[in-house]
Simulated assay, not measured.
Amino acid sequence: MTPPSITQLLIILLIIVLLFGAKKIPELAKGLGSGIKNFKKAVKEDDEEQNASEQSQIKQTTATTENTTLKDSQKQES
């Protein structure tokens, strides 16, 4: 599929201006930009939350392993 030519892009732009008006287009672009920004922020927060959860699980596993090892060594000393 070939990309649209400049003439086709200008026709599309003209139709958009006719449909929404010149004053609405900046508002639509601003809304789209803030939506993308909020989406990226939510994805980043979700990744950070998931990493924190994984680190917590690793700490719990390490602590459990250390406790088991300590108990085993105390039993062997007895």
Rank of each mutant, 00 (worst) to 15 (best):
T2G: 14
P3N: 13
P4D: 06
S5R: 12
I6P: 02
T7S: 10
Q8T: 12
Q8N: 06
Q8G: 02
L9V: 04
L9H: 08
L10M: 09
L10A: 08
L10F: 06
I11Q: 11
I11E: 10
I12P: 00
L13M: 06
L13F: 04
L14I: 01
L14K: 11
I16F: 07
V17Y: 06
V17N: 08
L19E: 10
F20D: 07
F20L: 08
F20H: 13
G21N: 03
K23Y: 05
I25E: 10
I25F: 03
P26E: 03
P26N: 05
E27Q: 14
L28Y: 13
A29M: 04
A29Y: 09
K30I: 02
G33K: 15
S34P: 01
G35A: 03
G35S: 14
G35I: 00
N38C: 00
F39T: 06
K40L: 07
A42K: 09
V43W: 04
K44M: 03
K44A: 01
E45H: 04
E45P: 00
D46Q: 09
D47A: 05
D47M: 05
E48D: 15
E49W: 00
E49D: 05
N51H: 07
A52Y: 02
A52I: 01
A52L: 12
S56C: 03
S56D: 13
Q57V: 02
I58L: 13
I58D: 15
K59I: 11
Q60C: 00
T62Y: 07
A63R: 12
A63D: 14
T64V: 01
T65P: 00
N67A: 12
T68E: 11
T68N: 07
T68R: 12
T68C: 02
L70S: 09
L70E: 11
K71W: 07
D72Y: 10
D72R: 15
D72V: 02
D72K: 15
D72N: 12
S73E: 07
S73H: 07
Q74H: 04
K75M: 10
Q76A: 15
E77T: 05
E77R: 14
E77A: 14
E77C: 02
E77S: 11
S78D: 11
S78Y: 09
